[in-house]
Each structure stands twice: as structure tokens, then as C-alpha cells.
């Protein structure tokens, strides 16, 4: 029904998160119809990203410069280091605008199913960054899951001998969350982490 090139485009688009084969077909058709305003600029952007984007050798973020823009920004707080599971978590924190320190991307969580052990988390690289002396506090921003918190505890135990302050994100009621709709685990975590007003 369609040429080999379009079929290949549909195939590749359908591998993207959020797109199935039908929505990939729709996206491909849209791209082909908007050749000059969308398809060609997108092709150029993809080629440029493929050529220039790399992993930051300091924190593990993706950027077109190494060290990345965050690591190279002298205005950021260099005494605060936030440890995150992956770049998606880093971008989520950046989107919130609430954190102005630096990051360290673990690249995964301890997982028996995925075969990720402490040696795969790059802890020596993290320890080396802390050993340079500028970092006063490490914030562990791993997910509130068994794997995420197990990883956080392992990282914390690894960092404790270095004499750096280690903290973790609070768990509890999300903004706009009604207790009636929350699961029991979130409610009990929120009660445990209650604070004085």
C-alpha cells in the first residue's frame, strides 16, 4: 500500500514510547504531508542529535557538550548533589525548577530481574566526585519503590564513610491529592513523615 521508505518510517515511529502501529502510521502520514515544515526539519534535528548528543562524563546527563550544560554552569550550587535513577528523573527535577545543584545519574536501580548489582551503578565514580571535597550534601532522589529505596540505602551506606550529609526525598501526599484516592502505602508513608506546622 505504501513504499518501502514510508513503511520503514512507520516501523521506526511505532517503536517510540506512546506510539502504536496505528498512531505511528498517522504520524508518518502527517510528516509526509508536511514535508517542508516538519519532515525535513525533523530529519535535520535527528541527524544533528545523533551526531552531537553524548553522555556527560561527569554526571551522566545527555547533552551536546561534555561536561553538560548543568555541570558547566558556574551559577549552580556546587555543594549540593542530587542522585537520580536516569536522565528522565533529572529532566523531571529540572522541569520543576526547585533544585539548583548538580546531578549524578546512576543509570539504573538494583534489580534482581534485570541483573543490576551495586557494581553496575557507578558508585566509585560517585565516591570520586564526593572525594573532590566540594559536595556537602547528597540528595537521593530514587523512586519510592522497593528497588528504588533499596538502591538509596545501598548508595547511602556507600557514602556514609565519606562524611558527607546524605538525605532522601520525602514520600507522601502529592499536591492536589485527596486522601480518599491515595493507596494505603502512600498514606502510611505520609503519616510517618508528618511535620510540625
Amino acid at each position: 500500500m505504501v513504499g518501502r521508505e514510508i513503511e520503514r518510517l512507520i516501523q521506526l515511529l511505532s517503536r517510540l514510547p506512546g506510539l502504536g502501529s496505528r498512531s505511528a502510521r498517522r504520524a508518518a502520514l502527517h510528516l509526509v504531508e508536511k514535508r517542508d515544515t516538519l519532515l525535513l526539519p525533523l530529519a535535520e534535528a535527528l541527524a544533528a542529535a545523533a551526531e552531537k548528543v553524548r553522555t556527560c562524563s561527569v554526571c551522566g546527563n545527555f547533552d551536546s557538550v561534555d561536561p553538560c550544560t548543568i555541570c558547566g554552569d558556574p551559577r549552580r550550587e556546587s555543594t549540593l548533589l542530587c542522585v537520580v535513577e536516569d536522565v528522565a528523573a533529572l529532566w523531571a527535577l529540572e522541569r520543576s525548577g526547585c533544585f539548583r545543584g548538580r546531578y549524578h545519574v546512576l543509570g539504573g536501580l538494583l534489580s534482581a530481574l534485570d541483573g543490576i548489582g551495586p557494581d553496575d551503578l557507578g558508585l566509585p565514580r560517585l565516591a570520586a566526585r564526593i572525594g573532590e571535597g566540594a559536595i556537602a550534601e547528597v540528595i537521593l532522589a530514587t523512586p519510592a519503590t522497593v528497588e528504588g529505596q533499596t538502591t538509596a540505602h545501598v548508595v547511602a551506606e556507600h557514602l556514609t564513610p565519606l562524611g558527607v550529609k546524605v538525605s532522601a526525598l520525602a514520600h507522601g501526599v502529592p499536591v492536589g491529592g485527596a486522601l480518599d484516592y491515595l493507596d494505603d502505602g502512600t498514606i502510611s508513608a505520609a503519616v510517618k513523615a508528618r511535620r510540625a506546622l
Partner: peptide
Amino acid sequence: LVTAHAAAVMDDPARLAALAAACA
């Protein structure tokens, strides 16, 4: 959900390690 055992032990490294070990 009947009982959220995981959430109850997330702040306790030893208990969390035991829960993860038992399941594994």
C-alpha cells in the same frame, strides 16, 4: 491491595533488605 508491606518498611534498610530477600 490488602496490606502495603513494602511502603511500611521503605525507610528501614534492614527490614527492606529482608522483604526484598524474601520475595527474591
